[in-house]
Computed example of a mutant assay.
Amino acid sequence: MGNRRHFIKAAGGMAVAAVFGVGLLGQVQAADPLKVGFVYISPIGDAGWTYQHDQGRKQMEQALAGKVETKYIENVPEGADAERVIRELASSGYTLIYATSFGYMNYVDRVAKQYPNVTFMHATGYKMGKNFGNYNARFYEGRYLNGVVAGKMSKSNVLGYVAAFPIPEVVMGINAFALGARSVNPKAEVRVIWANSWYDPGKEREAALTLISQGADMLTHHTDSTAVVQAAEEKGVYAFSYHSDMAKYGPKAQLSGTTHQWGDFYTKTTTDVLNGTWKPASTWGGVKEGMIKTVPLNPSVPAEVKDLVTKLEGDLRAGSFHPFAGPVVDQDGKTRVAAGQVISDSDLGKMDYFVQGVASKLRQK
């Protein structure tokens, strides 16, 4: 019995050593930190889409100090290079990988099947798997609020929008901006110029200047740089930032903006992986969940406009208001969401039309 008790005690000690590691001097050492990789589409810089994701990474790293080790790779194009980068992270010990651009989706899907013991999370996409989830923010909620300000304050009734690609994520933002503007100013129209790039400051600036030349006195963008806000500041028109607060690039121009808050999501998801409780899921959070926040309004915004935006934001948070509550009518006069109805997440996720109030065409015929 004594020998058996001694064996059990020794085996228990070996189990503890296996989990925590025992140093040469007998000290108990913590388990190795979880290695977490981030793949970014553009340079981090000091504003924009990638900057905001990196702020989330830093928040998570601070919240889980000592438990995680992170690495990021920036400026990774949406192509074969993305697959190479994602695979290299998976093969070099990174057991949780966040891929932060829509065009990475199919590459994440492919690599995830080859590395079943690695957890993959993809931003803005829709595919999933046993070790593969996705996440997104309800950008359109902030866009609607920004549109209300634009509609109220525009004198020309022309609102300019520099957009990357005609995919549902971008289209629903354009439509929400138009719906917000038209809710307070039926004469407002949104004109869109496609940059055909997520990050190209030169193209973004050129598109902004073209829109200004067409009479736009309000600008916004769904691209990654600060070029549109800078152009607005230079030309004396107003702008709404996207992804992050860009006030330092347009202190007079920026009236507000839509920001994405990823830190709490990254912290929770990484904690779930650490605890072994992670399961594949699709997360889509907005104002209510704290994943969308509007930039504080410029002092030049009238008090009654501030009050209206504050009320609408509260309604979004309470779930009593939806930017795509019917009736929603497209450019061709077709009712897409009937009166008394609210658009489904499924229909939002495949939105392929412009609403009335958008003057540009989604696709050239």
Rank of each mutant, 00 (worst) to 15 (best):
N146Q: 13
S101E: 10
A112H: 11
A150Q: 04
P116K: 11
Y161H: 05
G173E: 13
K130D: 14
R110D: 10
M105D: 13
V170K: 08
T119H: 11
F165Q: 05
G125Q: 02
M172C: 10
F120M: 07
F139M: 08
M128P: 09
D109H: 14
N106R: 14
F102I: 09
K127T: 12
K152L: 05
Y98N: 00
M121N: 14
S156C: 07
Y144P: 00
T124W: 05
A164S: 15
V170H: 10
M121E: 14
A99P: 01
Y126A: 13
K155Q: 12
G125A: 14
P168L: 11
F102S: 01
S156A: 09
V162A: 04
K130W: 01
P116S: 10
N146R: 00
A178I: 13
G125V: 06
I174N: 05
G129D: 03
V149A: 10
I174L: 13
A137Y: 10
V108F: 12
K113D: 09
M128D: 07
R143I: 03
P168I: 04
A123K: 04
A176Q: 01
M105N: 13
V111Y: 02
G142T: 07
M105H: 12
P116V: 03
Y140L: 00
E169Y: 11
Y107E: 07
F120T: 02
M128V: 06
F132M: 09
P168S: 11
G160E: 04
S154Q: 09
K152A: 09
L145W: 02
G103R: 03
K127Q: 15
Y140R: 06
D109R: 15
M153I: 05
M121Q: 15
V171L: 12
V171D: 10
G129W: 14
G151E: 12
N175S: 10
I174Y: 04
N146M: 13
N136P: 03
Y104N: 04
G151H: 06
S156T: 14
Q114C: 06
N134A: 10
V108P: 07
F139G: 05
A112L: 08
N117K: 14
Y107I: 01
F165H: 12
G147L: 00
Y140T: 00
Y126M: 14
V149S: 06
G142I: 02
A176N: 09
G151T: 09
T119P: 05
